[in-house]
């Protein structure tokens, strides 16, 4: 009796501890989950408990099973179902390509994002592959592959102003245009210098570029991937440019594995091959993403 009770209590604490690790990078959408994970005491333990689960034999484990169980959530353009009902996306195709090289079948399992580390550690899934932003909290709990996609917010200006605007400080009292509700808008609101600027909100990214081109605004803050594809030579916005060296709100995507997983090393190797032979670059172009350098 006592032993069973002890076991159950221990299990409960382990679960609480894992849940506690994730509070920083997830949006709580389950009121019940918020109750348990918001407990400040639960965050004390993660470092030790996370190390309990070791992924050392993962490569053999996955090869034995002949399949790689991939945890994802529906997230365009990484993993989603297209208009014809096909499950696709950058990460979907990327994972399929990696699995082909590994010699295993990919099995995509939809998970609850809040539970991703527990899913991984309980072996319900073998990896998290879903445009996961790499951060230090996650690194403490799981092994993460080399970054494969990079995104950031950049500042777009007219080429003729290249000399005047070289950093955010120089834009502190200028007119800056952003798309309402975009990541760019929050970057402007949070940045020490940019928050003092006159922020103009427009409904479309393309309108932001138009404002800068027309000179009605001094700069625009936009998604890097998008900006790269829309300005430059051969476009209507060839007279615009990205301010070099200003990288705002940089995020890099990685694949999550169990701590110390040898599978992670193997996938990194395959990823390097896929980059070398151009497969990944083609995929990035197809889905409008930018590979990490």
């Amino acid at each position: 009796m006592k032993r069973t009770l002890g076991l159950i209590l221990a299990l409960v604490m382990v679960v609480l501890a894992f849940a506690g690790c994730q509070t920083t990078d997830v949006v709580q959408d389950q009121s019940g989950a918020a109750d348990t994970t918001a407990d400040p005491n639960a965050t004390v333990a993660p470092a030790t408990t996370a190390e309990v689960v070791d992924g050392e034999g993962d490569l053999a484990y996955v090869k034995d099973n002949k399949k790689l169980v991939i945890g994802y959530t529906v997230y365009e353009p990484m993993n989603y179902t297209d208009g014809e009902g096909n499950f696709t996306g950058f990460d979907t195709e990327f994972a399929q390509a990696v699995c082909a090289k590994l010699g295993v079948e990919p099995e995509f399992v939809e998970i609850v994002w809040d539970m991703k580390v527990v899913e991984l550690n309980s072996k319900a899934i073998d990896c998290i592959w879903n445009g996961m932003t790499i951060n230090d909290d996650l690194k403490a709990q799981i092994s993460i592959s080399d970054p494969y996609v990079k995104n950031m917010q950049v500042i777009i200006i007219n080429k003729k102003n290249a000399e005047s605007y070289k950093d955010t400080a120089s834009l502190a009292d200028k007119d800056i245009v952003v798309e309402a509700g975009s990541a760019g808008e929050s970057v402007v609101a949070d940045d020490e210098n940019l928050k003092n600027a006159n922020c103009i909100q427009v409904t479309k990214q393309i309108d932001a570029l138009l404002e800068v081109k027309a000179g009605t605004a001094d700069a625009a803050v936009l998604d890097w991937t998008l900006a790269k594809s829309m300005i430059g030579e051969g476009t209507d916005y060839a007279d615009l440019m990205i301010v070099e060296g200003v990288e705002l709100s940089v995020e890099e995507y990685g694949i999550g594995f169990r701590q110390n997983s040898d599978l992670c090393t193997e996938v990194n190797k395959i990823m390097a091959e896929l980059i070398a032979d151009g497969t990944l670059t083609a995929l990035a172009e197809k889905y409008g993403l930018s590979l990490a350098e």
Partner: peptide
Amino acid sequence: MLQVIVIFYGPGLL
């Protein structure tokens, strides 16, 4: 909710 979590993840975590 906790019981659901324990039953599904419990064995793997142990």
